[in-house]
């Protein structure tokens, strides 16, 4: 059985973002880049507030998007890994 991921993602303070009607716009000055996330990615971004664990974020996705928990865990972990790789989030 997969161990719950208890890490807590948090936005890199060197970014600025806002969610507009469920879609997140992220400005990353270090990259001089602006990103628009899809609705699921935007929800993960909203929950990456330093208070929710990856496991808790996966649970929210399960409830809100009617997907199985294993897939939600995998999707959330992979997406957050990508965001961390771009230095848009850090781990609290």
């Amino acid at each position: 059985m997969t161990q719950p991921d208890l890490r807590k993602p948090v936005h890199n303070p060197h970014t600025a973002s806002r969610v507009f009607s469920g879609e997140a716009v992220i400005v990353s000055p270090a990259e001089n880049m602006v990103r628009l996330l899809n609705p699921v990615g935007s929800r993960i971004w909203e929950l990456a507030d330093g208070a929710h664990t990856v496991e808790e974020i996966a649970a929210v996705l399960t409830e809100e998007y009617a997907i199985e928990l294993p897939m939600a865990r995998e999707s959330a972990a992979q997406f957050l890994h990508d965001l961390a790789g771009k230095e848009l989030i850090a781990w609290a």
């Binding site: 303070p13 060197h14 970014t15 600025a16 806002r18 507009f20 009607s21 879609e23 997140a24 716009v25 400005v27 990353s28 000055p29 001089n32 880049m33 602006v34 628009l36």
Partner: peptide
């Protein structure tokens, strides 16, 4: 849509995105 509108306006303007504040 709102996010598309903001993105379109932002991409016309680079200076503002240079600093997080």
């Amino acid at each position: 849509a709102p996010a598309q509108a903001v993105l379109a306006l932002l991409t016309t303007e680079k200076v503002t995105t240079e600093r997080p504040e």
